[in-house]
């Protein structure tokens, strides 16, 4: 009885849910290739002119460059810090480990506006000017919990005897990190880089408060939304960012799964 009910309802619910979630997003690419400057149905005709208009837009290109710089730097810093933290969390027992993990994970649940405003206050207190640097600091803070989560799951499957075996075979500590630890952790590291980059790419709140005169793409888009005529170009830009994010996240997920599968077969083989 119960089963029959859920069997009827669940797929319907799932379809509705997915429609609500993704239909608006689907409108973005559709209107971005519509030749009319007004985003309404019916569509007028196919056109790539909005994409072409982006190309000559220096302000937009500058914002894109800023976004790339911030994304790359945040991803690198968050991942390097994440590697250290994940290793400490998985390998060592120390007092205050739980509270410390809690503090590191906090940005996950704190509203971004709180993070942005408190960072702004701190920076102003220290008399530091706003620049891409300050955005990077903020983004590292936001990316770190995600980076650590990805990396911890990578390090958890990493048996310390791999490093001992390397030392036993005559390798130095540095050589062991280079020849064993890093290659074995590579899927998790790449995955952490991509996830962090993607988060930084479309982060708005922190960038808005901390970027000063150097807007990133989301800030640029927000600025453009005031002009109705610019909307189609924004839609085109949004589509490009959407596709980029999707590709990055897919690659990251593929890496993560591959890593998980590796450690799984490892464990299965060893303890079977």
């Amino acid at each position: 009885m119960m089963k029959a009910l859920t069997r009827g309802w669940l797929p319907g619910y799932a379809i509705l849910y997915i429609a609500f979630l993704y239909l608006p997003v689907m409108l973005l690419p559709i209107f971005s290739v519509n030749s009319s400057p007004i985003p309404v149905f019916p569509l007028k005709g196919f056109s790539m002119k909005w994409y072409e208009s982006l190309w000559g837009n220096d302000i937009m290109l500058n914002a894109a460059r800023n976004t790339l710089v911030v994304g790359t730097a945040s991803a690198l810093v968050a991942t390097i810090l994440g590697i250290c933290a994940a290793r400490a969390i998985t390998r060592y027992r120390f007092t205050g480990k739980r509270p410390m993990s809690g503090v590191i994970m906090a940005p996950l649940v704190l509203p971004e506006i709180i993070i942005a405003i408190s960072l702004l206050l701190v920076l102003l207190q220290f008399g530091l000017g706003l620049s891409l640097m300050t955005v990077i600091v903020g983004h590292v803070l936001i990316c770190l919990p995600y980076s650590i989560t990805v990396l911890v799951s990578g390090f958890e499957g990493f048996d310390p005897s791999f490093e001992e075996a390397s030392a036993d075979l005559g390798e130095t500590t540095f050589g062991t990190i280079r020849r064993v630890t890093l290659p074995m952790m590579m899927p998790a590291i790449v995955s952490s880089l991509l996830v962090s980059f993607t988060i930084s790419l479309d982060e708005f709140m922190v960038a808005f408060f901390l970027s000063g005169r150097e807007p990133t793409l989301p800030i640029y888009i927000w600025g453009q939304l005031r002009f109705a005529a610019k909307l189609p170009a924004v839609l085109a830009l949004g589509t490009i960012m959407l596709v980029g994010s999707l590709v990055l996240l897919t690659v990251a997920e593929m890496y993560r799964r591959r890593a998980a599968r590796k450690t799984l077969t490892e464990a299965g083989g060893l303890f079977a």
């Binding site: 001992e164 390397s166 036993d168 075979l169 390798e171 074995m184 060893l270």
Partner: peptide, 29 residues
């Protein structure tokens, strides 16, 4: 340190490096 001792170990978990093939594992040291 372990890397300068004239001993070698066969681990209970074997600790075969998963990112290398058999030859590369044996040639590691």
């Amino acid at each position: 340190p372990a890397n300068r001792r004239p001993t070698n170990m066969v681990f209970q978990s074997y600790a075969i490096f998963p990112h290398m093939n058999v030859q590369e594992n044996v040639a590691y040291g």
